[in-house]
Simulated scan of single mutants.
Amino acid sequence: MREGHERADRRALRRERRGRAAAALVVAAVLVGAPSFTGCDDDSDERAGGRSAAATQRPRPKPTPLWDTSPGSIAALGDSITRGFDACGILTDCPEVSWSTGTDPQVGSLAQRLLKDPARSSWNHARNGARMADLPGQVAAAVTERPELVTVMLGANDACRDSTALMTPVAAFRADFETALKRLRRALPKTQVYVASIPDLKRLWAEGRQSAFGKQVWRLGICASMLSEPDATDQASADRRQQVYDRVVAYNSALREVCGKDPLCRYDGGEVFRYRFTGAQLSRWDWFHPSRNGQERLADMAYRRITARE
């Protein structure tokens, strides 16, 4: 009998030990899964409106600057197009008809449409023959006036060279535009920029070659890479013109991409490049640069883009 009781006692002891072990595992699991007092405190602080250290250190996104559709001053940068070259007389500038800062009411420049006092709050820094490499210098001149809007129409002369081999490489064109925009942004972080696309030079050749007088003027050296031997139809001439066309397309892509990285820069979306200039919009002296009518069309396109609410 005693042996039977001892065996029963041993079985009871083993069951008790197994029960204690199971209870210990349950307690351990509860403790591991339970939130710490610190976590509870953080939770209650956030519910009460407090902030944890991690939340305080989290960077906040900067608000996107708002585009002002009514800037108070304008500086024009660019080349002979913005100078109104050959719009009023042969081989002469006519800045009063400039699409950006002109004073001719027939054109209705941006300055006339946007500014209360165009004569005192607009400046034209464009220069005949300017290429993209000249833009940083034009920016340096413009920042002294602290314009609220800068217009840029530049790049035709990078493609209009004596030969296609002399056209500005796309990488250099892009780098010069980036440098100019960075220089402007460092000096005037809130100034807005409107960038016009380069016109389709092949389209201008197709229109201008209809004028015998215009072709005579082209012999003086205007955009030789595109306009030399204007009536030639051989494959080499066609290939040369296509090279110029392709380079302008690449330049416009660079303008779009660089401008697109700046929230205060608006590219025209290629509207000038796509515009189908006719004889009415081309100078009657060189059949290449915009006439008064052409300058008006450029002003129309720029005004729509600058005043668009996006």
Rank of each mutant, 00 (worst) to 15 (best):
M1G: 13
E6M: 07
R7W: 06
D9Y: 10
R10W: 03
R10D: 05
R10K: 03
R11V: 03
L13V: 11
E16M: 13
R18A: 14
G19Q: 12
R20Q: 11
A22C: 08
A24T: 03
V30H: 03
V32D: 04
G39P: 00
D42S: 09
G49P: 00
P61T: 05
P61N: 01
K62T: 13
P63H: 08
T64E: 13
P65T: 15
L66A: 15
S70P: 05
S70L: 11
P71R: 09
S73M: 02
I81V: 12
G89N: 10
G89R: 08
L91W: 08
T92L: 13
D93M: 03
D93Y: 03
C94F: 03
V97C: 03
S100N: 02
D104C: 05
Q106F: 02
L110M: 02
D134A: 01
E145V: 00
E145I: 04
R146S: 04
R146W: 00
R146V: 00
E148F: 10
L149H: 03
V152C: 06
N157E: 05
C160L: 02
R161N: 06
R161Q: 11
M167T: 10
M167A: 12
T168A: 08
P169D: 09
F173I: 04
A175S: 12
A175N: 07
D176F: 01
F177Q: 11
T179Q: 14
L181C: 11
R185N: 05
T191C: 13
Q192I: 06
D200Q: 08
R203K: 05
R209V: 11
Q210N: 14
S211R: 13
A212R: 14
G214P: 05
Q216R: 14
R219Q: 15
D234A: 01
S237E: 13
S237I: 15
S237W: 15
A238Q: 15
R241C: 10
Q243I: 04
D246E: 13
Y251H: 11
N252K: 10
R256W: 05
G260L: 03
R266G: 07
D268N: 01
F273D: 12
R276S: 05
N293M: 15
G294Q: 04
Q295G: 00
L298Y: 09
R305Y: 06
